[in-house]
Design a protein around this nucleic acid. Structure first.
Length: 287
DNA sequence: TTAGAGGTTGCTCCCGTCCC
DNA sequence: GGGACGGGAGCAACCTCTAA
């Protein structure tokens, strides 16, 4: 069958695709939408008419199919994009609402107490005790702690924020005496500190459960740990090998200092005093 | 084009301090 | 006592410029 000149039909299809792309690249208002809709109707009618009359060549039909497919893909991508934008908008709205609620509740509070009395510290204490040799949680560790803490039946007031975890570890290392111990016994060297804590762990003996703390270095003869962004190799020695010149008295003092640190991390100083007062009260009431 | 030096950035930590 | 904040230090990654 002799076909009519295919150029006008092809030009119509290409112009239509170009019009769709132009509309997407500019501000797509109501007027543009109506113009595009009219053009789409015109293309549809013209192509259908030519097809019914058997006036469309194979290449023109293929071109039409290819353009149709490209527009369909564009539509899918746009829908996906729109869904993503909706999701983003939804989550940012929630975030803004939560920030505003926090600010409102802050300003409502008659006393501007900066402390969060109900701070959910159990997971942080546990992590610290399990990593006494190197209590510097990585970003991933901190997020794990956050996730566990905020999932374990914490009340709304106990929900931890990332920055609170960072601050808690900084304050606890300093206030528990861990930093002092590092400077005094390991001369400020964190690698030495890890080796020393491992030596303490093996000399004390027992299991993590009975000891209630661990160096966090595992059982292998040597190990590599991440210290900040560097990898360090830890060598294993007994406390006698590590501190050969230390007298029994000094050794005893070191063990006592260490025990105090562990207790402070486990309970906090406040709780320890509270426990002691309770013990005194209960022992006097028994008499 | 490449290597090295110097500056910038982002992250983490510590210290001093406030404040309930 | 302990959570929080501001300021500053240290470090690694990245960036920019310059000389060979």
């Amino acid at each position: 069958m002799p076909y009519i000149d295919q150029d006008p039909a092809r030009r119509l299809l290409i112009e239509f695709e170009q019009a769709v792309l132009d509309a997407l690249a500019t501000n797509f208002g109501k007027a543009e939408y109506e113009r595009l809709h009219a053009k789409s109707e015109l293309v549809k009618n013209t192509i259908t008419q030519l097809f019914q009359q058997g006036q469309l060549s194979q290449p023109t039909m293929h071109l039409g199919a290819a353009i149709g497919e490209r527009i369909e893909q564009l539509k899918l991508a746009l829908n996906e994009h729109r869904a993503m934008m909706d999701e983003l908008q939804q989550s940012s709205s929630e975030e803004i609402v939560s920030i505003l609620e926090r600010e409102i509740s802050k300003s409502k509070a008659a006393s501007s107490d900066r402390r969060d009395i109900g701070l959910n510290t159990a997971q942080m204490r546990e992590w610290f005790l399990e990593n006494m040799g190197n209590p510097f949680p990585s970003r991933t560790d901190k997020f794990k702690i956050l996730k566990i803490s905020n999932c374990q039946g914490a009340t709304k007031a106990d929900i931890l924020r990332y920055n609170q975890v960072v601050l808690w570890f900084i304050n606890t290392r300093r206030r528990s005496g861990w930093t002092k111990f590092l400077r005094h016994y390991a001369k400020g060297d964190k690698t030495k500190m890890m080796e020393l804590v491992w030596a303490l762990e093996t000399s004390v003996g027992g299991t993590h459960a009975s000891r209630s703390w661990s160096s966090g270095l595992g059982a292998a003869a040597t190990t590599k740990i991440r210290d900040g962004r560097k990898e360090r190799k830890i060598s294993r020695m007994t406390i006698q090998e590590y501190m050969p010149d230390m007298s029994d008295y000094e050794l005893e003092k070191m063990y006592m200092d260490w025990e105090k640190i562990v207790e402070r991390i486990r309970f906090g100083v406040k709780e320890r005093v509270g426990d002691w007062i309770e013990q005194v009260i209960s022992s006097t009431s028994e008499q």
